[in-house]
Design a protein around this nucleic acid. Structure first.
Length: 429
RNA sequence: GCGGCAGUAGUUCAGUGGCAGAACGCCUGACUGUGGCUCAGGAUGUCGUGGGUUCGAUCCCCACCCGCCGCCCCA
């Protein structure tokens, strides 16, 4: 029988890497809380139509990357239902916003989520079929200020803070505006017209994109095509006055908050629901998957899925890539316990558990050894798992003076049991 | 989904149509309450899976699985 393994594109996260993941999530939660975001948890699966309408029927995500199945009927009278593992979380959050009539509160909703998403893509490093996203949405009725460029700037400033606090060095914020959907339609047309006379000089990929999806031409990385692309019309020149003013206000607020950004006229990508502000935080060293997070404004999404007018802005951050980036920066090494309690002889095992319990109740991180080990073996095990080792033999039990070995200083000390926890808590010197 | 490269010990990787290898790690002992250094010994394994060619396949061929790189797309 073939051995069982995690299915393609999925994986197990094990210590010590999970410690890094926990740190990432704890940092995100702490930052979000300071910006007055609350956590939302939506189901990992939803009705298929939510994603079809919210994300866009024509997008690759919906047309070929979703895990969709027909949920079977339990009774003859019940209909089957098409369900889908969520490929992203914004649609689910907006669905919940509508379902719970959060707009009726009149308040701006600031919600964040952390959880797995599912897309049936070809796996690669930093790209999995079950992947994890940390994201947030600011959404509400226009009267709550949900359309304000200040919201965009606040979210971007929060993200800059979060990446800094996570210890990501060398990130770049790329920023653009895609205007209204009407603006985008006009721009698409202008792009097609501008491409027509020059496309024959471009790479085969671009020749194909020019027909199927002209916006994708802007992503081309072939060096020879760059001068041609630079000469193409920019969406900035096709924005209506409102969108232009909105974008100017966003950048003014970013300047005031000292958030560095780079205008990227080619950043027009994104899902169907994006309007106006779009952005990406990128980082080198991730290969073709250089985006750490992406997001933008989606003023029409709620209405697209049958809800009230509820403009919003949000982002999703790839936690897998974040962990990868941090791992490359700091080479996650397993942290060490405060102490390893080594009983000397099996008869000392029970007393060792009692000692370990005492120390653990005082908040120390303690590993418990095994009395059948020879002292040499205890030392070897302790050296790998803890900063210090506490020897508990007959002598120590009788005298109440415990033997403590510090592995970084090499010092061995006799410590009264009452002072043990305090002694072990001292940092190495 | 398309194109390319790979899969051998826990890990990183050599290797050959004819006994399955190294380094590191692991275990035991030298050393019965003192680790790291040293020395001596030991175990590593369906050579990704299934077929085919062959007297014989880990090696050659085919298919599949999985990973990596790029494309598509995206976080």
């Amino acid at each position: 029988m073939a051995t069982l393994k995690a299915v393609r594109g999925t994986r197990d996260l094990l210590p010590p890497e999970t410690a890094l993941w926990n740190r990432i999530e704890a940092t995100a939660r702490a930052v979000f809380a300071r910006y007055n975001f609350g956590e939302i948890r939506t189901p990992v699966f939803e009705e298929t139509s939510l994603f079809a309408r919210g994300v866009g029927e024509e997008t690759d995500i919906v047309s070929k990357e979703m895990y969709t199945w027909e949920d079977r009927a339990r009774a003859a009278s019940e209909k089957t239902q098409s369900l889908t593992l969520r490929p992203e979380n914004t649609a689910g959050v907006v669905r919940a916003y509508i379902e719970h009539q959060l707009g009726e509160t009149g308040q701006l909703q600031k919600l964040y989520y952390i959880g797995p998403q599912f897309r049936r893509e070809r796996p690669q490093k930093g790209r999995y079929r079950q992947f994890y996203q940390i994201g947030a949405e600011v959404i509400g009725p226009p009267s709550a200020g949900s359309e304000s460029p200040l919201r965009d700037a606040e979210v971007l400033e929060m993200l800059a803070t979060l990446l800094d606090e996570l210890g990501i060095t060398g990130w770049t914020l790329e920023l653009n505006s895609v205007g209204s959907s009407a603006d985008r339609g006009r721009y698409n047309q202008a792009l097609r017209e501008a491409l027509a006379p020059v496309v024959s000089q471009m790479c085969p990929d671009c020749q194909r994109r020019a027909v199927t999806n002209p916006l994708r031409v802007l992503d081309c990385k072939v060096p020879e095509d760059q001068p041609i692309i630079d000469a193409l019309p920019r969406i900035a020149d096709h924005l209506d006055q409102e969108s232009e003013r909105h974008f100017a206000a966003v950048t003014a607020a970013l300047d005031a908050a000292y958030v560095p950004y780079r205008r990227n006229h080619r950043l027009v990508r994104g899902l169907d629901y994006y309007t106006r502000t779009t952005f990406e935080f990128t980082h080198g060293g991730l290969g073709a998957q250089n985006a750490l997070l992406g997001g933008g404004r989606y003023d029409g999404l709620s209405e697209a899925i049958g809800g009230p007018k509820a403009p919003g802005i949000g982002f999703a951050m790839g936690e897998d890539r974040l962990a990868l980036t941090l791992l490359a920066q700091e080479a996650a090494k397993a942290p060490l316990a405060d102490a390893y309690v080594a009983p000397l002889g099996e008869t000392m095992n029970a007393a060792a558990l009692q000692l370990a319990r005492e120390l653990r109740h005082l908040g120390l991180w303690v590993e418990l050894g095994e009395g059948s080990f020879r002292l040499k073996k205890s030392f070897e095990a302790a050296d790998k798992t803890a900063r210090q080792m506490v020897i508990l033999g007959e002598d120590e039990l009788q005298s109440g003076m415990l033997t403590v070995k510090n592995f970084s200083t090499g010092m061995q000390t006799k410590v009264p049991r009452a002072e043990l926890a305090g002694f072990l808590s001292q940092p190495d010197c």
